[in-house]
Design a protein around this nucleic acid. Sequence first.
DNA 1: GTAACAGTAACTGTTACTGTTACATAATAA
DNA 2: TTATTATGTAACAGTAACAGTTACTGTTAC
Lengths: 143, 143
Amino acid sequence: MANRSQQFSVAVHILCFLEFNKEGRTTSELLAMSVNANPAAIRRIMRRLTKAGLIASTLGTNAAIRLAKEATHITLLDVYRATMEDNPEAFVVHKHTNPACPVGSKMPFLLEGVYTKVQSTIENELSGVTIYSLVKDGIIGVD
Amino acid sequence: MANRSQQFSVAVHILCFLEFNKEGRTTSELLAMSVNANPAAIRRIMRRLTKAGLIASTLGTNAAIRLAKEATHITLLDVYRATMEDNPEAFVVHKHTNPACPVGSKMPFLLEGVYTKVQSTIENELSGVTIYSLVKDGIIGVD
DNA sequence: GTAACAGTAACTGTTACTGTTACATAATAA
DNA sequence: TTATTATGTAACAGTAACAGTTACTGTTAC
């Protein structure tokens, strides 16, 4: 990934929680307890998910957070793109190579090609897993 | 990836250079010029490649760096493992979830399963590309 | 108006990497 | 043997990105 952040992990956690607790009322404090993190940190990640149209929240006393789409229609690729928005690239190319060198002048292009292919396989893999399937097979199914 | 370093990119660059210049004498200074980096930075990456058995170097006045294996037998997966040695994991799992929560208690395990699968596809993809093929098709072939 | 909770800004500490200097070590050549 | 050349390696500063946290603003229900 671009960075080693846990934001993707926490984002998946949030979405699974919302699906699991779809009948109940979920707050950022409740999520923070489940994730074991600060409510503000949860809200920071929520912002990205909201922006990506994956969750929606209401304000006020009885505020609640819920999925904005069916869990069957939210894939991990959606989550990946929402959280890695800034640096979706798994690898970083060193671009400032020596243009006068036969090797240096071609490396960035070469690496770009490799990375694009790898990136595709990652995204393809992620697009095959939905929040629904995670909750159904991994949380409700087990116990 | 684990981190956003360019070490993998530079490592591939180094290996391609060595293959391309296999008839000539390659020094860390020459590599530094091609990569456009500091010789010490090159040597820092070289250390990992040496440790992984991908390159070998001699000391002294006529010191030289060369591939320790045939370029046809060095895949990008070898390079990936050599440079990402410390954190070979593409994703980071948030492990300290709430064990008392039905969702929190299962998330680390769930995510681990997903990440393992993704990691496999990445490594599978990387294992299909050799330094030889990169140099042949991307450097010598083009011009 | 008060309470509850999301939205958000701001600050700190930590980690990891890059860039760099400097020096020890080894091998060649004179 | 000595000077030279280049690798091996330690050490340090600067930078960027996160994680953790506090605190404030804005909105809704009662």
